[in-house]
C-alpha cells in the first residue's frame, strides 16, 4: 500500500500489505484492550518516501480498553539488528489500536508524538503514527506524520 500526504507537504509512505495484515491481526488478538508497538523502516528518494518494512512488538507494556503504555525494555538487540542491515532500517514511529473507535489521534497520542520529537535519542524529526481503529466490525487505518508542528494524514494514492 502506498500512501501520500493529502495536504501540500508532498511526503509519501509505503507499507507492505503483509505487514499491515499482521499488525491488524495482532491488534485484534488484544481486543478489547489497546495494543501497539514500534515501526521500523527507512527513507528513500532523497528522503521524501518512507518505506515501513518491519515492526517490533514491545516486551513490556500495560494496556486497557482506553490506554496503552509501552516501554523499550528488551528491544535494543532488534533495533541494532535492523540498523546493521543494508540498507539500514531504523525506528520511524509507532502504532497502536483504538478498540471500538475510529483511527483518529487523541490528545494523548499527539502528546506521545511530541515526546518522540523532543527526545534526543529518538533523533526523529518526522515520526509517523499508525492507528488501527476497530469501530464495530470494521478496520479503520489512519497513518499520520508529524511535520513542522502539525500532524498530517496520509491518503491512499
Amino acid at each position: 500500500m502506498i500512501l501520500r500526504t493529502a495536504e501540500k507537504i508532498g511526503l509519501s509512505l509505503e507499507v507492505d500489505d503483509k505487514l499491515l495484515n499482521e499488525l491488524v491481526i495482532i491488534g485484534k488478538e488484544h481486543y478489547p484492550n489497546e495494543f501497539g508497538g514500534f515501526l521500523v523502516g527507512n527513507y528513500r528518494d532523497d528522503n521524501r518516501h518512507l518505506h515501513i518494512t518491519n515492526m517490533i512488538l514491545p516486551k513490556s507494556f500495560m494496556a486497557s480498553k482506553y490506554s496503552f503504555e509501552r516501554s523499550t525494555k528488551g528491544i535494543k538487540n532488534e533495533l541494532d539488528k535492523y540498523y546493521n542491515e543494508t540498507p539500514k532500517k531504523f525506528y520511524v514511529g509507532e502504532w497502536h489500536t483504538h478498540p471500538d473507535n475510529r483511527a483518529i489521534p487523541s490528545l494523548t497520542d499527539i502528546s506521545a508524538i511530541n515526546t518522540i520529537i523532543q527526545n534526543h535519542s529518538a533523533c526523529l524529526v518526522n515520526p509517523v503514527l499508525l492507528i488501527i481503529g476497530f469501530p464495530r466490525t470494521q478496520v479503520d487505518l489512519g497513518f499520520y506524520v508529524w511535520f513542522e508542528n502539525k500532524l498530517y494524514k496520509y491518503e491512499q494514492s
Binding site: 509507532e94 535519542s121 524529526v125
Partner: peptide, 20 residues
C-alpha cells in the same frame, strides 16, 4: 520537504502512552 533524522540510530523514548 523531506523526512529527517538528527543523525545516528533513532532510539524510541523509553516509555510512551497512547490512548483514548
Amino acid at each position: 520537504n523531506k523526512y529527517g533524522t538528527n543523525g545516528g540510530m533513532p532510539i524510541p523514548p523509553p516509555k510512551l502512552n497512547f490512548g483514548l
